[in-house]
Write a protein that binds this DNA or RNA. Sequence first.
DNA 1: ATAATACTTTACAAAAGTGTATTGTTTTAG
DNA 2: CTAAAACAATACACTTTTGTAAAGTATTAT
Lengths: 172, 172
Amino acid sequence: MRITAVEEYGLRCLLNLARAGRGKQMSISEIAESEGLSVPYASKLLSILRKAGLVQAVRGRSGGFRIARDPGEIDLYEVLFALGGPLIDPDHCQKHSGQLDQCVHTEECSVQGVLGGLAGYVQSFLAGTSLQEIVDGRPCTMARQSTAAFEISDTAHSDELRSGVVDDPAGN
Amino acid sequence: MRITAVEEYGLRCLLNLARAGRGKQMSISEIAESEGLSVPYASKLLSILRKAGLVQAVRGRSGGFRIARDPGEIDLYEVLFALGGPLIDPDHCQKHSGQLDQCVHTEECSVQGVLGGLAGYVQSFLAGTSLQEIVDGRPCTMARQSTAAFEISDTAHSDELRSGVVDDPAGN
DNA sequence: ATAATACTTTACAAAAGTGTATTGTTTTAG
DNA sequence: CTAAAACAATACACTTTTGTAAAGTATTAT
């Protein structure tokens, strides 16, 4: 589970336009240079954002992009959904049924339950964060209350590697 | 942002052993058949779980796998971290600096801030959910309070596609 | 002992994701 | 009208992930 490159860079490109403001426009070159991306790559990302209705393009010699709505009216869920789709595929059980015809957990797909719960949890965070809040540098309430725990997270689990092969087959 | 195949299937394999219980063991064949996976693939997943210390292997003719600790003592964060690593790479700004030498947002990396907040938020969910809770089919409190919102999520954003090309370059 | 069973490791092919290159279309400055 | 500037679309190479295949190691029933 991770943030994809398209989501990361696409969000950054959009934030440039959010910082510029509702009416101002920037060219692909300006955005690409600002984020250290190649022009063709930034172009691809902005094309995705345009098709999602998040930015508007102006063609021609004095063209460029501008944000489609007020940054305060665009939430992070809409942005990440446009760039990377949903956290869990709608027809999840169809695709993840292995070699069987249908989901192996038809009676009680507990995996589906917990991952669906996670997806909803994540969405509540994303939908509660607007681009304006990110530009202003004040993450939403939910973020601040759990950031501290994340800081010490990785090391806590990284040194748990061991052989896993036991000497006692009986389990006593 | 999505759950990877290894995370999904790895978790499912581990849940089989969690359902079997602390002392019981299952062979790769049994687990593979139970989840509709090929034996070699299940073998690879269980190997990852073993190296992470989550399961123990018994070799030889009457061998198999069993869960290393009580399912109530294993949380979902540890499992997903073992199978797919952290949500955000520790040296994030080094890798995502584009063509520049250092992160383009050194003064105020607002993207890093909000995504770090998201990672912490997700972790609080995962760390608060044990395998036992999943087996019992009762998602943790955090899941239930936000599941309803997820149900109606996808359709709400899917029909926002438009051309994005405006007829009014001036923006009036 | 030996064969059967089960885990281990490595290698590899197919698919998806990432980023670049190229060519085309649109608009405007002159 | 023409050339320059800027967005649009497609194709392609590269990398990572995914899943399979095959050969190897370890244990035990007989």
